[in-house]
Design a protein around this nucleic acid. Structure first.
Lengths: 219, 219
DNA sequence: ACTTGCATAATTGTATACAATTATACCGTA
DNA sequence: TACGGTATAATTGTATACAATTATGCAAGT
């Protein structure tokens, strides 16, 4: 299980990205092709390809003939991303209200049910995983591959802070309540309400981060 | 002039992207590393790196061990992108109203002045170039590298249809009028108006495409 | 005519070799 | 000590070599 048969190149890409987002590679750190290759047991070629892709994602800056450096993520970056996401998740929820299928609604309700359980138990890892899935279903339900693409990117990009915020039980519970209300609007195919609730959901996340304290969010 | 000293790899990337956006490489066409490399006078290595990057941008699909294929862009894709952009350019204009500098305002006014001239003359190539620059200034003025990044991507992505729509004099003139009103709002630092006008500007572009006829936009 | 199987060719995936560029260390000199 | 300069090493950029996978052509059998 989970033995994805991806290419080496693809695995290297995901591994390096994970190491950046998890903080293993510190900000401004120089990523040397040789050492990363040795670390992952591959040659420089797949590493180079991965670094070029990560540059496009904005996680890495490449200075020609010099090296690749981890791009840091600031408080402002995160605020901006959540503000951007609030608009786009709103749009996404609106479209989803018009296109969502019964199967997707069922999975959303199951997701909320499970999330209730795991947040009450304090299983933050499962909560994060369910949150990932919740939003992914919405992205799929929007019926727009463009919107899905950009939202997946952003959602992934802020994974680090989401892991921290959702580890606090109170926020996990509130977040799931907000999810619940969004699903109710989707079930009623009320596009306007869905948009407003999704927008609010994201803005509440920012407010929560303000209360939590940014110094703890950015390690 | 224009003798940019970029790396080979980077030039290959931009060349292939240009060839996709300009329609030289047709949709669903298979892009073979060897032939592209020969065409551009480089080995497979830089071509591979470019194709991996283009996959991340969504312009190419890579099927492992099979090949890279040009991803087509549909009417719905373009509609979605303009709808997404209308929200984000609105947000961008709002932020720009708060951060824009006098130099940027000056360049915007010069841009409109020049655009008046070229659209009256029917110089559509210069009009497109000025439109590019107009939006780029706004992206910079937003003060958000995240917003700038995503909007530049989208703006570039729809370059093909923009070339067609702005080649029609009436739309070029109207578009520039809308730009003028946005700049007036920015000069007054009226964030709300700037947001509304930028949003409308994008929605008008969609309406214009509807009038123009999609069959002509997608070759 | 239409499969099936297999040999061959073409293509991608990865590793390595070599060239070009940049960083580092060591030296002599003031 | 501080400053250049030069040789050396380290690193990136590109090309090529080889392995693995997939596509193609052709002959045999039904």
């Amino acid at each position: 299980m989970g033995e994805d048969n991806y290419s080496l190149s693809s695995r290297v890409f995901h591994t390096i990205r994970e190491n950046i987002l998890s903080g293993k590679y510190a900000m401004d750190e120089e990523l040397k092709e040789k050492s990363i290759g040795e670390e992952l047991g591959v040659s420089r070629t797949p590493v180079r390809e991965a670094l070029r892709q990560l540059e496009l994602e904005g996680l890495v800056t490449i200075i020609p003939n010099k090296g690749a450096y981890v791009v840091g993520i600031s408080e402002k970056d995160i605020r901006d991303i959540y503000e951007i996401r609030s608009r786009l998740e709103g749009l996404c929820a609106r479209w989803a209200a018009e296109h969502i299928t019964k199967e997707q609604l069922d999975e959303l309700e199951e997701n909320i049910y499970l999330s209730d359980f795991h947040s009450s138990k304090g299983n933050s890892e499962q909560v994060v995983e369910l949150d990932n899935r919740f939003h992914e279903i919405l992205y799929n339900a929007s019926g727009s591959k463009e919107l899905r693409h950009i939202l997946l990117d952003f959602h992934h990009y802020v994974q680090r802070v989401r892991k921290v915020t959702l580890a606090v039980q109170e926020r996990a519970v509130n977040s799931n309540d907000e999810h619940r209300r969004i699903v109710e609007a989707l079930k009623a195919h009320d596009a306007k309400a869905a948009e407003r609730l999704a927008d609010m959901h994201l803005m509440n996340t920012i407010r929560n981060m303000d209360n939590y304290g940014w110094e703890n969010l950015l390690k």
